[in-house]
Amino acid sequence: MALLEVRGVVGGYGEADILHGVDLDADAGEIVVIVGANGAGKSTLMKAVAGLVRIRAGSIAFAGEAIANAPAETMILRGLAYVPQERNVFPSLTVEENLAMGAYARPAQAAAGMARVFALFPDLVQRRRVAAGQLSGGQRQMVAIGRALMLEPRLIMLDEPTAGLSPKFCALIFERVQAIAREGVAVLMVEQNARPALAIADRGVVLAMGRNRATAPGPALLADPEIGRLFLGG
């Protein structure tokens, strides 16, 4: 049984459903990359797991426990961390304070968590007292990921972590994502940068119109000419 098991999830915003029965698995130490066209439901699926979008049918289990529609603020204590695509740092709080917010639910773990995050992203050390709103896009992404890692989650969900970043930063983020997974954390990632993301994915999930289109190891999806033509821009 996988760490995260999503089965037949139906849901969306208000009256309009965006997900029409989606399945998804993620295991400890595994990188799962979700790809698909705009509007396919990638971000919505992540938000549903995070408790930010209500689901009307289907089930979500995390570590064997049903978590569908549980309040978003309880997820972090279950070991499930989420990094939204935009607005993922507190702009007026310093880097250090942002990270401390990541340990809000268990303040005793703040010091240890901060040490780990600074080891993972050494660039942040000298900017620790700078307001997050003044950082570059790449550094902000590091703060956002670092914040999510503060309480040693078992699953981290990243919504387009490389959007708008320079190739150098993209490579750095993907490299760190692999490091995080090696620690035994399950990584669930939505990516526009589908090719490099799938290249490191243990599992690639293709969504289309709110439904599963294909699921296979990332490199296998990359090798599939039809998937490439339809979903990866040729």
Binding site: A50, A72, I76, M101
Partner: peptide, 8 residues
Amino acid sequence: DLARITGV
């Protein structure tokens, strides 16, 4: 929203 996600 972000505050809620961080467990506030």
